[in-house]
Amino acid sequence: MFSVPHEIDLFGIYFPPFFLASALGVLATCLLAWRLNALRLSRYFTNPALAFLAVSAILACLFGTFVLPS
Protein backbone atom coordinates (compact mmCIF):
# COMPACT_ATOMS: atom_id res chain seq x y z
CA MET A 1 0.00 0.00 0.00
CA PHE A 2 1.24 3.48 -0.85
CA SER A 3 2.10 5.97 1.83
CA VAL A 4 0.13 9.12 1.01
CA PRO A 5 0.96 12.25 3.02
CA HIS A 6 -1.92 13.98 4.74
CA GLU A 7 -0.39 17.42 4.41
CA ILE A 8 0.99 19.41 1.49
CA ASP A 9 4.39 21.01 2.07
CA LEU A 10 4.85 24.44 0.47
CA PHE A 11 8.19 26.04 1.39
CA GLY A 12 8.20 24.43 4.83
CA ILE A 13 4.59 25.32 5.64
CA TYR A 14 2.17 22.42 5.90
CA PHE A 15 -1.33 22.86 4.49
CA PRO A 16 -4.25 20.44 4.59
CA PRO A 17 -5.17 19.03 1.18
CA PHE A 18 -8.61 20.66 1.22
CA PHE A 19 -6.95 24.11 1.39
CA LEU A 20 -5.32 23.48 -1.97
CA ALA A 21 -8.54 21.97 -3.32
CA SER A 22 -10.54 25.01 -2.26
CA ALA A 23 -7.95 27.37 -3.74
CA LEU A 24 -8.09 25.47 -7.04
CA GLY A 25 -11.89 25.50 -6.88
CA VAL A 26 -12.03 29.27 -6.41
CA LEU A 27 -9.47 29.81 -9.18
CA ALA A 28 -11.40 27.57 -11.59
CA THR A 29 -14.64 29.35 -10.65
CA CYS A 30 -13.04 32.74 -11.32
CA LEU A 31 -12.00 31.54 -14.77
CA LEU A 32 -15.47 30.13 -15.38
CA ALA A 33 -17.15 33.36 -14.24
CA TRP A 34 -14.83 35.39 -16.48
CA ARG A 35 -15.75 33.19 -19.45
CA LEU A 36 -19.47 33.34 -18.66
CA ASN A 37 -19.27 37.14 -18.46
CA ALA A 38 -17.43 37.28 -21.77
CA LEU A 39 -20.15 35.18 -23.42
CA ARG A 40 -22.88 37.16 -21.59
CA LEU A 41 -24.30 33.95 -20.11
CA SER A 42 -24.08 35.13 -16.50
CA ARG A 43 -27.14 37.33 -17.01
CA TYR A 44 -29.30 34.21 -16.73
CA PHE A 45 -28.37 33.77 -13.05
CA THR A 46 -30.77 35.35 -10.58
CA ASN A 47 -28.06 35.83 -7.99
CA PRO A 48 -24.55 35.65 -9.54
CA ALA A 49 -22.76 35.83 -6.18
CA LEU A 50 -24.66 32.83 -4.86
CA ALA A 51 -24.01 30.94 -8.10
CA PHE A 52 -20.28 31.75 -7.74
CA LEU A 53 -20.27 30.42 -4.18
CA ALA A 54 -22.14 27.25 -5.15
CA VAL A 55 -19.91 26.48 -8.14
CA SER A 56 -16.75 27.10 -6.12
CA ALA A 57 -17.96 24.69 -3.42
CA ILE A 58 -18.81 22.05 -6.02
CA LEU A 59 -15.46 22.42 -7.78
CA ALA A 60 -13.55 22.35 -4.48
CA CYS A 61 -15.24 19.06 -3.59
CA LEU A 62 -14.50 17.64 -7.03
CA PHE A 63 -10.85 18.70 -6.88
CA GLY A 64 -10.54 17.29 -3.38
CA THR A 65 -12.10 13.99 -4.36
CA PHE A 66 -10.61 13.27 -7.77
CA VAL A 67 -7.47 15.38 -8.24
CA LEU A 68 -5.69 15.63 -4.89
CA PRO A 69 -4.63 12.64 -2.83
CA SER A 70 -5.93 12.61 0.72
Results as ranks from 00 to 15, higher is better:
Pro69Lys: 14
Asn47Trp: 06
Tyr44Trp: 15
Glu7Arg: 11
Pro16His: 06
Pro5Thr: 09
Ala33Thr: 08
Ser70His: 10
Ala49Met: 13
Pro48Lys: 07
Ala38Pro: 00
Tyr44Phe: 15
Leu62Trp: 05
Val26Gly: 02
Ser42Val: 01
Phe52Lys: 02
Ala33Tyr: 10
Thr46Gln: 09
Phe66Gln: 14
Ser22Trp: 05
Trp34Asp: 04
Pro48Asp: 09
Ala57Trp: 08
Arg35Gln: 09
Ala38Met: 07
Asp9Ala: 14
Ile8Gln: 04
Asn37Cys: 08
Val55Pro: 00
Ser22Asp: 02
Cys61Ala: 13
Pro5Val: 13
Ala21Thr: 05
Ile13Gly: 03
Met1Asp: 14
Pro69Met: 12
Leu59Trp: 04
Phe66Tyr: 15
Arg43Ser: 09
Met1Glu: 08
Leu27Tyr: 07
Pro69Asp: 13
Ala60Glu: 01
Leu59Asn: 00
Ala28His: 04
Pro48Tyr: 08
Leu50Arg: 04
Leu10Pro: 01
Ser3Trp: 02
Met1Pro: 10
Tyr44Pro: 01
Thr29Tyr: 02
Leu24Ser: 05
Arg35Cys: 02
Leu10His: 11
Ile58Phe: 10
Leu24Asp: 03
Leu32Gly: 01
Leu36Asp: 04
Leu68Phe: 15
Ala57Arg: 00
Cys61Val: 05
Ala49Lys: 03
Pro17Cys: 06
Pro16Tyr: 03
Ala23Glu: 07
Leu62Arg: 05
Phe19Leu: 12
Pro5Leu: 12
Ala54Leu: 14
Phe45Asn: 04
Ile13Cys: 12
Leu24Tyr: 03
Phe66Val: 14
Ala51Phe: 01
Phe19Thr: 14
Val26Ile: 10
Asn47Lys: 08
Arg40Pro: 03
Pro69Asn: 12
Ile8Val: 15
Arg43Asn: 10
Ala54Asn: 08
Phe15Cys: 04
Leu39His: 06
Arg43Met: 03
Ser56Tyr: 00
Ala21Tyr: 05
Asn47Val: 05
Ala38Arg: 11
Leu39Phe: 08
Pro5Trp: 11
Leu41Asn: 01
Phe52Asn: 00
Val4Gln: 15
His6Phe: 04
Ala57Gln: 04
Arg35His: 10
Ala28Gln: 05
Val4Ala: 11
Met1Gly: 15
Phe11Gln: 09
Ala23Arg: 04
Arg43Glu: 11
Ala57Lys: 03
